[in-house]
């Protein structure tokens, strides 16, 4: 039976090396020989059942790997109030697991009690800034821990936005004390789709507040005008320009725990491990370089 009392021991910090998004089909591989994989991220919502194999495996994994809990359902950017039942489930999980980090998205997913199972965009205005700030304060207070906020991938912009995304995120962090999760693939996707310079975004972004990186693959499509439209699919290897942007980020801001996300068309473990090893090389090489002035 699972011990449902909170762990008393010190949590294992995420190392400044590479982790992967945990998939149950990789359990045996990870327990036998994780290779370049040094930590794991789990999606909180998959571990909110009362018991069974998911939680038992997570307990075993947490004895071996530092764990980062990544929520996809809090709807921090939602117009509605945060769902108290969901917050309670989340608190139960993080109190039990005591993960190294907890992160969520600058997005909304629930409206009128309907959960849409996707990360939906919000405009960047003074109103939404106040709302997101209020929600993050509520989350951090309720969980009794700091959270990391992840930048979204964007396919379109809101005409009503009055803040740039890096400024908006910086101001949220200033007001709430939250940390940041920088998804480098998301920056590249948004930069391509909204036609801005991804390095200028990084230059404006508060790298000193970043406690975790995400890396993932994306798909390429086009809009009705034939303009390139990248889709955040998490279903293939990390694209070359994303590695280049990652190198730029690490050279400028230093190494952090970096996660390879692969959520669709999930490969066998050796292919995922190879991608983790690839990320490890980039992390090591870039962190010894300086950004040219």
């Amino acid at each position: 039976m699972l011990d449902t009392s909170p762990k008393s021991g010190p949590k294992k910090a995420l190392p400044n090396s590479v982790g992967v998004g945990y998939k149950p089909q990789h359990y045996n591989d990870l327990m036998e020989d994780p290779g370049a994989v040094t930590w794991l991220e789990i999606h909180a919502e998959n571990y909110m059942g009362d018991g069974g194999r998911p939680l038992a495996q997570l307990k075993h994994l947490s004895e071996r790997f530092p764990i980062s809990v990544h929520g996809v359902g809090l709807s921090i950017g939602g117009e509605s109030q945060l769902d108290p039942e969901h917050l309670a489930r989340l608190k139960k999980l993080v109190d039990w697991l005591n993960p190294a980090k907890f992160s969520e998205h600058l997005a909304w997913s629930t409206h009128d009690s309907q959960f849409l199972n996707d990360l939906l965009p919000l405009p960047y205005t003074n109103d939404t800034l106040a709302r997101v700030t209020r929600h993050i304060n509520e989350v951090q207070e309720f969980l009794g821990r700091k959270m990391l906020l992840e930048n979204p991938s964007s396919y379109l912009a809101f005409a009503e936005s009055t803040w740039s995304e890096p400024d908006f995120i910086r101001e949220i962090a200033r007001r709430t004390g939250c940390g940041l999760l920088l998804d480098v693939n998301n920056v590249f996707i948004s930069a391509t789709n909204l036609e801005f310079d991804p390095r200028a975004y990084i230059d404006a972004y508060p790298l000193e507040l970043v406690e975790e990186f995400h890396l993932a693959g994306h798909d390429e499509d086009a809009d009705e005008l034939g303009r390139k439209l990248l889709i955040d699919s998490h279903g293939k290897p990390v694209d070359e320009p994303v590695w280049a942007l990652f190198d730029y980020v690490v050279a400028k801001g230093g190494a952090r725990p970096a996660l390879v996300e692969w959520d669709n068309d999930v490969p066998e473990f050796p292919e995922l491990e190879a991608e983790a090893a690839h990320a490890t090389n980039h992390l090591a090489a870039a962190s010894t370089r300086q950004v040219p002035a």
Binding site: Y155, L156, A157, R227
Partner: peptide, 14 residues
């Protein structure tokens, strides 16, 4: 109010 980089309606992006 959902727009492409030129500020035009973004149907396919939606």
């Amino acid at each position: 109010g959902l727009v492409n980089p030129d500020g035009l309606q973004a149907e396919k992006r939606f």
